[in-house]
Amino acid sequence: MNEVDFLLWVKGSAFNIALFIFVAGLVLRLFEILSLGRKVNYAVPKGDPMQGGLREIFRRFGTDKATFQRSMITIVAGYVFHIGLFVVIFLLAAHVEVFKSVLGFGWPNLSTPVVDAFAVVTMIALVVVLIHRLQHPVKRFLSSPGDYVAWAVTFVPLLTGYMAYHHLLLSPQMMLGLHILSVEVLLIVFPFTKLMHTFTVFLSRWYNGASMGLRGVKS
């Protein structure tokens, strides 16, 4: 298998397999979660659960000052890499084309050097969170292999994509192939690791917020 065959394979059958597992996995996981149900609440509500749920979905993007000071690295580095990932994944022209081909619609892209800069910043932020995870007593204690796997499958696509774009180390075809392959690994493990929080975060915030809304707790 030469590098072009490899690139064709990752773009072809491998991508289809990964996409299949990703989509089926996502749906399956949501069923797994929702099937467990929730008991009817007989307490007379003080507020609207729906409103509380929606409020918490948005409010938790921010934090209070004291919490910010206590968890500054987590919050700042976390924000930087989340925004960076968003920009890199969704606003690079080549990526927009992929979404267009899968979803049937696309959106405007940013210029390539801008996305490139975001990729660098994102990688730095990810390295920072990794070091922080290894050094912070609580984070290190809480971390399971799954946490490191999730980090790696997020970081490697960024690195390979960056290297493919800048023609580093290997030929661009090989690097592009490795880049796409690493994304496929990400897609496959996504529904079954903590990466799933990308979707369940809204569910969790809503459930928590609904409970707060019902109790009339405004934060």
Binding site: K11, G12, N16, L19, I21, V23, V98
Partner: peptide, 17 residues
């Protein structure tokens, strides 16, 4: 475009769902 997967991804995603 070069980045676009070669298979019929949209359909595949529907089957996957």
């Amino acid at each position: 475009a070069l980045s676009i997967p070669t298979g019929a991804s949209g359909k595949n995603a529907v089957y996957a769902a």
